[in-house]
Each structure stands twice: as C-alpha cells, then as structure tokens.
Write a protein that binds this DNA or RNA. Structure first.
Lengths: 229, 229
DNA sequence: TCAGTTGGTGGACGTATGTTCACTCATGAG
DNA sequence: CTCATGAGTGAACATACGTCCACCAACTGA
C-alpha cells in the first residue's frame, strides 16, 4: 500500500533533516529512496529492467546490501512500482469522478486535465507507458492487470453517467478500452514533447481531442446488432 | 537495406551447408546471425536494451569481438532492426494494397489478415511493440519515424480509395494514426495470447474488429467544422 | 601466383555486477 | 537500565561485461 508522502519530492517537511524519526519511518525513508532512485533513473531515459541493483542503491545513497532489507529483487521493486502507478491511475479516476461531467467542451477539458495529471505524475506514467509492452513478462502482466482494473472502473463510471445509453456493458467496456489505450499512448507523446513549444503543444492537444471525440462519436452511433455469426 | 533471406529461418537453401560462398555473403551470414540472435533473445521475453553484446554473439555462435566487424554498438544493431521492421510494415501495406478492398466484411477480413501477418512476423512486431515506448531514446525515436511514415502511406492509400470523402487530409491522417496505434497495441495482445485457446482467440478478434469498426463509424460521421478557436 | 584485405579467433585487461557474510550500533520493548 | 532486534555498513567473492590487441586463414584482385 505504501502511504508515501511522494509524489513530488516534499522539501523535508518541517523537521530539519533526520535523526528524529521512529525506526519504522526511517526504514520507509530509504525504501522510498530506492523506489525514487529507480524512477529517477528511468527519467533519464533508461528502461526499468536495464537498471542494476547497485545502480539503484548508488543513486539512493545507500550501500548495495541495504537493498535486500527492502526487496529481494529488482523485479520486486518493479511490482511495487506497478502497484503505486495503479494507485495513481485510480486517484486520477477519483478526481475525475468528483469533478463531475462539465456539460460543454467536456472532451477538450478532460484531455487538458489528463495532460496536467500526466505531467504532474510524470514518473509513474513514464513507467507504465514504457513497461506496458516492453518490460519483463511478470511486470508486463502486472501492469496489464492494473490497466484492466482501471478500464473496468471507468466502464462503471460511464455506465452510471449514462452518456451512452445505447451501449451494452460489453460494448461500453470496449469503448473504454479503446479510450484508455489511446490516452495511455498519448501519455508517451505528452512526456516526450519538448517543453516551450506552445504551438506544437496545442497541435498535440488538438490531435488527442480529435481522437477521443471521434471515438465518442462512433460510440454514440454504435448499434449492437451489427454482428454476424 | 539488408536483403536477407529471412524471415522464417530457411533450412539451408540447397547448398548443403557452407564453405562455398563468396566473401560478402559469408559476412552477411554472420551479420544475419547476430540480428537473429538479438530477435531470438527478445522472443524469450527480454527487452532489447537489456541485451548484452557478449550474450548476442554467444547465441549467434561467434566470438564477442566479431560483433565489431558488423556493428559498432548494440544500439547500431537496434537501428538496423528498426529499419527491418519498417520494411515489414511497408510490406504489409503493399500486400494489403494489392488485395484491394473486399467490399463485404472488409474490417473483419482485414483484422484477420493483420493477425496472420503479425504471427508470421512475430519477432519484428515484438520488437516494435516492445521498444516503441520502452526502449532507449534513440531507438524510440527511430521507431516513431518509421511508424509516422507508415501512417502517412496508409493515409495516402485510404485517400485514393476514397472511403472517407468527408475527411480532410489532416483528419484522415488522424484517423489512420488512431487505427495504427490501436492495431499496434493489438499486436501485443495477439503475441501474448496463449496458443490453443480458440474461444479466447475469437473473443480477442471480435474485440479488435469492434474497435476498428467503431473508429470507422466515427470517421464516417466526422464533420470538420466541429472546431472552435 | 602472390600479396593485401578482412572476417573470425583467442586471450587479456579493467570494470561492473549480484550476492554472501560478519560487523556495527541506534532503537525500542521489557 | 538492559539487551535483543534489525537497518545500514564494508569487504570480499565469483561472474559477467565491453573493449583492445595480435594473430590466423582464406578469399580477392592483380
């Protein structure tokens, strides 16, 4: 579950530096340092399963052997990372739920909110987008589970919002899968976009908006009985 | 350009084994062996940039130093792999062009042809799908170029087929991008699917068909002037 | 036929890796 | 206060890595 204070490196809370925390929190501290180290290394363009144990501990500022106090493997750390990323996705959904459905320009607004969310959770999205198809089999399947779960929840939400009363639950899920895959790929675009180029950013946003709009357009017109045996 | 006889390991042509070829072909031979070794290692679940030079040469059956006679880097081998995969994609497009547009059940047929193509070019699709978002930055951007080019060509094809006369060139490209991203992700599903489970395979195929059908449905209904400033 | 070119070899190097072990020494429970 | 617990240390290991070098042998072009 890992109730870490991250994301967004908190500047040391109020206690000046260290030395005053109970044992458990000190442990959690270096555990977080290890996880953050892995994320930071991926932020430099590396892929997760090319990271070495020693490399991670070096960035985290501990000795290699300390790693084993927290994980038996780099793979185990990866699974924790998957879990964390899942929490981030779920948090996004929760916030979207709270915001409700803005009636006008809903899709564009959602894309903008999504982009902001991706940027402020850059490391998690980098990890998910990067390892979803590329990583080690065990991590890949863990991510797949997390994303499937996310799609299910999104399906439930759209179902309750009754935006597509014409769709059966199965078709609604299919639409959500399409949207999620599209936006997860969009995350790669967003994260790769060089900062500062405002025109290019707008073009990219337009592109994402159009794609989702087109999907929704198709969904509104979808009829179930288009099937043949 | 690499006019290799692969894909699909040819069983030694007609000449019994070796020793009779001119110098250049001999060189190409071990070069192919290196490339195939990398692909085969990825087929075992590894990601490309976790492959080591020695590991590749070991599988290829040559000594590590031989590697440098062909590539200066594993990264350079990766770029060759990108180029090859691009050729595979282009080949797919060419075959699709030749086959023309079957009027009835066109989408389902296309999805089936695509699935067959992915399976018989498993290694290239595995490489592209895996490294598209996960690999080293230089390989990622090389793949992005290749895929962008592919999208452009597909856009031209659809334009000449005049299936969507309502779409501007930009919108048509947007649709193609959506389709390509969807089907490239579908390749992951297809390759991960355990063989033998026919029911699951049909469900997966239906899913892919529905997604493309929904995109096309949206594309047919798309109107340009939905934009605001 | 002969010399030059060159793909492949084998050994060696410095360095990095994952994992082990015995060791500190502050913490927190009794 | 005492003392067992356990997070973090430092040294050492076997192994793997990328890269360099001198060398061979065979194909090539003259």
């Amino acid at each position: 579950m890992t109730a870490r204070s991250r994301p967004g490196s908190e500047p040391n809370a109020c206690t000046d530096d260290e030395e005053l925390l109970p044992r458990g929190q000190r442990k959690q501290r270096t555990r977080d340092a290890l996880i953050d180290a892995a994320l930071q290394l991926m932020n430099e363009g590396r892929s997760f399963n090319s990271l070495g144990l020693r490399e991670i501990t070096r960035v985290a500022g501990v000795v290699p052997t300390s790693f084993y106090r927290h994980f038996k493997d780099t793979n185990e750390l990866g699974l924790v990372l998957v879990e964390e990323s899942g929490l981030t996705l779920r948090r996004m959904l929760r916030e979207a739920r709270r915001a409700g459905a803005p009636v006008k320009d809903m899709i564009r607004r959602s894309v903008q909110v999504y982009k902001a969310f991706v940027l402020s959770n850059r490391l998690h999205f980098l990890f998910v987008a990067g390892e979803r198809s590329g990583g080690s089999p065990v991590i890949r399947s863990a991510i797949r589970n997390e994303v499937d779960q996310f799609i299910d929840e999104m399906t439930q939400d759209l179902r309750h919002l009754a935006i597509f009363p014409n769709l059966s639950p199965e078709s609604l899920r299919m639409v959500c899968e399409l949207v999620v895959n599209t936006m997860l790929h969009a995350a790669t675009d967003i994260l790769d976009l060089p900062p500062g180029d405002e025109a290019l950013a707008r073009a990219q946003e337009d592109n994402h908006v159009h794609q989702v709009r087109l999907i929704f357009l198709g969904a509104q017109l979808w009829r179930e009985e288009t099937e043949k045996a």
